[in-house]
């Protein structure tokens, strides 16, 4: 090994200075204020502000193109913001890029594993970027492979792995430096339900260990399952903020009655349903009636002599919150 392993005193004492505003600032691991990013004419992130306390699972929920990845890249200290301020562990990623990134584990939207290296070597190599010695990395890599349920794949080449396995390896890789903050950009997009559940379980365990999770998703069930608190983003702006339950309480009713009358009738039936429930939403394929008691609403529909092709009563979800806020569906 031709790279020195020893840390000099000088290295240890050159801790980056914390930002001035201590006090209440320090209880947050991440603080963004009016964060903005433009690419030419496109404003990908349009002045968003939020703070994340240590140990929280914080979500960015929004459709494709909302600016989630762009926000994550700025937090991750790999993309320069256009304006606004950003502080991670009290540090500005623009001036303290390496220091900020040293605190983080990052799972990007697109896997960028080293396909030419074996599974385990991917972990070792990545750990080297943090200056971690092999004596630490070897047992740590084995521990993480176990965590990611990839122990029997340790010697395989990465391109032999399934999508779910690659995703788990990317997560394992992001944990090699034992970060207290983990950034996950659409961790389960494109995975089958079983692979998603394995991943969720792993993320729960990390949360239990007190790791701060920042995750983006366009799956509302994922956001509901994993996030303590989230922001709903659309077109680079924050539409709402809160816990999944409080968002549903604030922007939706307890239950939703979904009715299908066939595509022609759906558009015109609205007037005849007037007054049932608290709010009515007409979609191309169905009509949604927001009501505290869905069954009661359905009885009212029948009482008016209307006969839907199908009807379904379900609890409100973040999908409904999104629909209410933007007038559009989250997943098309």
């Amino acid at each position: 090994m031709w790279v020195p392993e020893l840390v000099s005193n000088e290295e240890l004492s050159s801790k980056p200075s914390r930002s001035k505003t201590q006090g209440d600032q320090m209880q947050y691991v991440i603080t963004a204020k009016d964060l903005t990013k433009t690419y030419g004419d496109v404003t990908a992130v349009d002045g968003i502000s939020f703070s994340v306390p240590a140990g929280e699972a914080f979500g960015l929920l929004g459709p494709n193109g909302a600016g989630k990845s762009t926000t994550m890249k700025m937090i991750g200290g790999v993309s320069q913001r256009t304006s606004g301020s950003l502080s991670i562990m009290g540090l500005d990623p623009e001036s303290h890029g390496p220091e900020v990134r040293a605190h983080l584990g990052v799972v990007p939207q697109q896997d960028n594993l080293d396909e030419e290296l074996k599974v385990r070597d991917n972990l070792l190599v990545y750990g080297r970027y943090f200056g971690l010695p092999m004596s630490y990395l070897r047992p740590k890599a084995d521990e993480l492979l176990e965590f990611a349920q990839l122990t029997d794949k340790a010697k395989s080449k990465v391109d032999a792995l399934s999508g779910g396995m690659k995703r788990r390896l990317t997560i394992a890789r992001s944990l090699i430096n034992e970060p207290r903050i983990l950034l996950l950009d659409e961790p389960t997009t494109g995975l089958d339900p079983q692979a998603r559940h394995i991943l969720w379980d792993r993320l729960f365990r990390l949360k239990e260990q007190g790791v701060t999770l920042i995750l983006t998703t366009h799956y509302m069930d994922e956001a509901e399952q994993l996030c303590d608190r989230l922001i709903v983003v659309d077109k680079g702006r924050i539409m709402a903020e809160g816990s999944p339950a409080s968002l549903i309480r604030e922007y939706s009713t307890r239950e939703v009655l979904e009715l299908r009358f066939g595509s022609e009738r759906n558009a015109t039936i609205g007037a005849e349903l007037e007054g049932i429930g608290e709010r009515l939403e007409t979609l191309p394929d169905r009509v949604l009636i927001y009501a505290h008691d869905g069954e009661a609403a359905l009885e009212q529909v029948s009482a008016r002599g209307l006969r839907p092709v199908t009807s379904l009563v379900r609890r409100s979800s973040l999908e409904d919150v999104f629909l209410r806020l933007t007038g559009r569906s989250l997943v098309d």
């Binding site: 031709w2 840390v7 290295e11 240890l12 390496p98 040293a102 943090f130 200056g131 630490y136 034992e178």
Partner: peptide, 26 residues
Amino acid sequence: ALLRAHSPAVSAARARRWGSFYYAEQ
């Protein structure tokens, strides 16, 4: 006890000094 990563500050200091070598190694 062995499985403790050094602190982020040490990671950053090492990367600032030796980062090119780390990537060359890869």
